[in-house]
Design a protein around this nucleic acid. Structure first.
Lengths: 328, 328
DNA sequence: TCGATTTATGAAAACGATTTCATGAATTCG
DNA sequence: CGAATTCATGAAATCGTTTTCATAAATCGA
């Protein structure tokens, strides 16, 4: 491999001048610039990025945390982020936390060991106090998920509004017996807020909720099947179900249809996210503006890297949109 | 940030010894080892990875090329690869080629500039001759896609067999008027082979194919809708359709059902991949063993990096499996 | 017991760039 | 026209490790 030294020698100039040409610094005559360019081509030279990283103390790389990339919500988010990053000259390192605290903490070393310039979190497993100390090593931007303590920019949606919007829609359609599938695990703020919004919509309409209409830990299509299994056994089943994800909604819808139930006549279902699968299954759903979230988050990150210090807390709240289809 | 020098000073030892402790070299007394460990903790020291990369001439990072991460086939592949890579101490850089030759070529610089130790290609846009010269910079492993010229290890499936398997199944079910949706774009070997397998199955059964039953450029659910639009207008429509992806199959199935057709009575459909959506839509499909592909490819890559020279051409061919559901 | 290994440590070179500093030539300005 | 800028270039320091080489002490073997 040719080094900058080789180029300098061939061009009959110093490393400094070659470096100047590479980095488009001023104060290099056209003549020498040509000499350098020619030498670079001749030697098939490319700057070694490890050396450059070391000297510059930056990596042009950003780590993106997702629980699992196969979740279409997150893969869409990552798709857009990678595109934006590439445009701005950054690369993405993919970190799958697998919904595990320890995994998430392990990846934090990337920032500490200067392998990346910053971290974008799309989900949060640990308490914010775990992240806090790492802010001295580089910027962190949160998106989708949010945390009250996090002193960093966050791009997210008001999930209370989102679930309120969806629930209100069910109520407006005349349903009064409403089931609820809680999506997220444990203590996620998202799932808490969604529940708040759901209950608020009920309260505003003066509707009561039965405990047995409440389902926990429903993420997947499979979980949707199981929810329906439970529903079908009830003496007094809900007329409509609010779900935290299109997968669950799709699972319920499919199981219902397989059992000979009609959607929405026998049971109405509303999803969340507006994934491709929602269109396929004709699901009414609450859409999250994934592209905007991803773009905003990436812009904030690149800005933070440029100014070379962590950005302050800042909330960017984007709106939901209700997509009406035939499942409600 | 503390450096190795600081640790050395605090421990009253040389950088060398500290480095030895970090890298678990032999010939360090327990006593000094403790001193070093203590100093490292006290200073909250972590080795700077840029420096280490420069000196070691390796990055512990692998680039994975996919067309788009939102394609469930590829996101599944990447999910498994990331997990395997993390286990072995490697990180993944995600490269989305967007099905574009130029994008793909751009990412090649990662290898040349020593930003990654190797490349795993899951799809190939350019001719192999474009990749060939980069082999001097590091190993390349191909999976899913394949190329006859590529002098590198490849993990793939015999797509001729795959489509033969699916088509044969349709024939065995008694269908004789078979439509075909070509998935991949342009000159992909995969799509060529799939077609060969399809035609071979017809030939072996002595069945004729009509030109109008042949559909090009069908990748998405939307494309599936359009295929059905065309089918419904035909005087002599096919009885069954072979598709190159579950998305297309799902699109056709949905459009057919929406139009009041029965699946499989009015039209049978077979998908490809066995994505979650195939189960949801009850699609018979040809399953590709994604996890095995991903794991094999990653193992080959890590091995190639370890031995520090490109591996020879080598074909690892994995088997398909037919998943029977109610769409055929 | 004496030479040959093995063990333990540190000084300095190397990895390949960028950046600071110094210096001289060319240009501008009052 | 002389002083102050601006332009153009290179030598050397620097980024933070790992690795080579040298050296000395401890252990081994016959």
């Amino acid at each position: 491999m040719a080094t900058i030294q080789d180029v300098a020698k061939l061009a009959g100039l110093s490393r400094t001048t070659v470096s100047r040409v590479i980095n488009r610094h001023p104060y290099v005559t056209e003549e020498k610039k040509k000499l350098v360019t020619k030498a670079m081509q001749e030697l098939n030279y490319v700057p070694n990025s490890s050396a450059r990283r070391l000297r510059r103390q930056q990596t042009e790389t950003i780590a993106v945390y997702v629980p699992r990339i196969t979740n279409p919500f997150f893969s869409h988010l990552v798709e857009v982020m990678e595109k934006e990053a590439a445009k701005k000259g950054y690369q993405l390192i993919l970190c799958q936390t697998q919904y595990k605290k320890e995994q998430e903490r392990n990846f934090l070393e990337l920032l500490k060991t200067k392998q990346v310039d910053g971290l974008i979190l799309t989900s949060i497993e640990n308490d914010w106090s775990q992240f806090e100390p790492y802010l001295t090593f580089g910027p962190i931007v949160v998106c989708n998920e949010y945390s009250d303590e996090a002193q960093v920019p966050s791009v997210f949606l008001n999930q209370i509004e989102g679930s309120y919007l969806g629930t209100k829609h069910l109520i407006d359609r005349g349903y009064t017996k409403l089931g609820y599938c809680a999506g997220n695990h444990k203590s996620s703020r998202i799932s808490k807020d969604r529940k708040i919004g759901f209950l608020k919509a009920l309260e505003d309409a003066g509707i009561e909720m039965k405990n047995e209409w409440f389902f926990n830990k429903a993420y997947s299509v499979q979980d949707g099947f199981e929810v329906f299994e439970a529903v079908i056994k009830m003496d007094n089943p809900p007329e409509a179900i609010f779900t935290g994800s299109d997968e669950v909604a799709a699972g319920i819808a499919k199981a219902a249809k397989d059992a000979g139930w009609k959607v929405p006549e026998d049971i109405a279902i509303i999803g969340f996210d507006n994934q491709p699968l929602a269109e396929l299954m004709d699901l009414t759903t609450v859409e999250q503006p994934i592209e905007r979230i991803a773009r905003h988050a990436m812009e904030l990150m690149v800005e933070a890297i440029k100014v070379k210090k962590p950005l302050n807390r800042k909330e960017i709240i984007l709106p939901f949109q209700l997509i009406k289809r035939s499942s409600t």
